[in-house]
């Protein structure tokens, strides 16, 4: 099991108020799974994402990543886990504007003990893998949104993380580039990469194997995508809408006849 979470809760203090962001979450994610985490804002999905990414520590409960008890680790150890085990992809890319695509992808290896000698070679390979072999010396402002997110994906992949964590990766992209990035994720998944993606778009979640829905800090449902009732309803709705659109189009075409 890549991720094993038991009884995980997270409490924030907002002034005198205590906010229960997570209230006892149990979750297992296996190797090579592609999981979508969904939920309304305030459902706790961002908090869960932060804990999964070792950016935040749970107040209570167990989070084991590849058998390592991260809930017992200190800041420096967590930093190392983030560096070696986790690849982050953010909604707003978070690239360094001063640096070229290649330098951006090399960044995680600066903080790594394992790969810094081969950083350049590895970064080139990662950029090649996301289809940006010809854009290595471009700076982020010379790249399109989709290309920027590809650079970010390359950066996330470069240290060969055991999980790829994407937080609304298509939130800042138009539908064409969204499709591109989703395709890239599917390709990585086919190549064996474990992927956890936080999204509120059923369209994006449709590509995952499994959908975990959160509400009020608890797991509301956890089904394979094809069996998820909400997703099925959405699929039906989408199919109906498509049929309606096709019908309208057909009527419009048929009208003169």
């Amino acid at each position: 099991m890549t991720i094993r979470i038991r009884e995980l809760s997270k409490v924030y203090k907002l002034g005198v108020e205590r906010v229960h962001a997570l209230r006892g979450v149990d979750l297992d994610i296996g190797k090579n799974e592609f999981v979508a985490i969904m939920g309304a804002s305030g459902s706790g999905k961002s908090t869960l994402m932060n804990v999964l990414g070792c950016l935040d520590r749970p107040s209570r409960g167990v989070y084991e990543l590849n058998g390592k008890p991260t809930h017992r680790m200190g800041a420096a150890q967590l930093a190392r886990i983030r560096n070696e085990e986790i690849g982050f992809i953010f909604q707003s890319f978070e690239l360094l504007n001063r640096a070229t695509a290649l330098k951006n992808v090399m960044l995680p290896m600066i903080y790594s003990r394992r790969h810094w000698r081969s950083a350049r070679k590895r970064a080139k390979a990662a950029l090649d893998r996301v289809g940006l072999a010809d854009r290595m010396s471009h700076k982020p402002n010379q790249l399109s949104g989709g290309q920027r997110q590809r650079v970010a994906v390359a950066r996330a992949l470069v240290n060969e993380p055991s999980i790829l964590l994407a937080d609304e990766p298509t939130g800042n992209l138009d539908s064409v580039t969204t499709h591109e990035i989703i395709e890239l994720f599917r390709q990585l998944h086919r190549e064996g990469q474990t992927i956890v993606i936080v999204t509120h778009e059923e369209e994006v979640a449709a590509n995952a194997d499994r959908i975990v829905r959160l509400r009020d800090g608890r797991v509301l449902s956890d089904h394979p995508t094809a069996e998820d009732p909400i997703h099925r309803r959405w699929l039906a709705g989408a199919a109906a809408a498509a049929a309606e659109a096709a019908l309208k189009e057909g009527l419009a075409e048929g009208a003169p006849a």
Partner: peptide
């Protein structure tokens, strides 16, 4: 600030 956040997210220790 965001850059620092990113650097930390991808594994820069506080000391670094």
């Amino acid at each position: 600030t965001r850059e620092i956040g990113l650097r930390k997210a991808i594994g820069a220790r506080p000391m670094v």
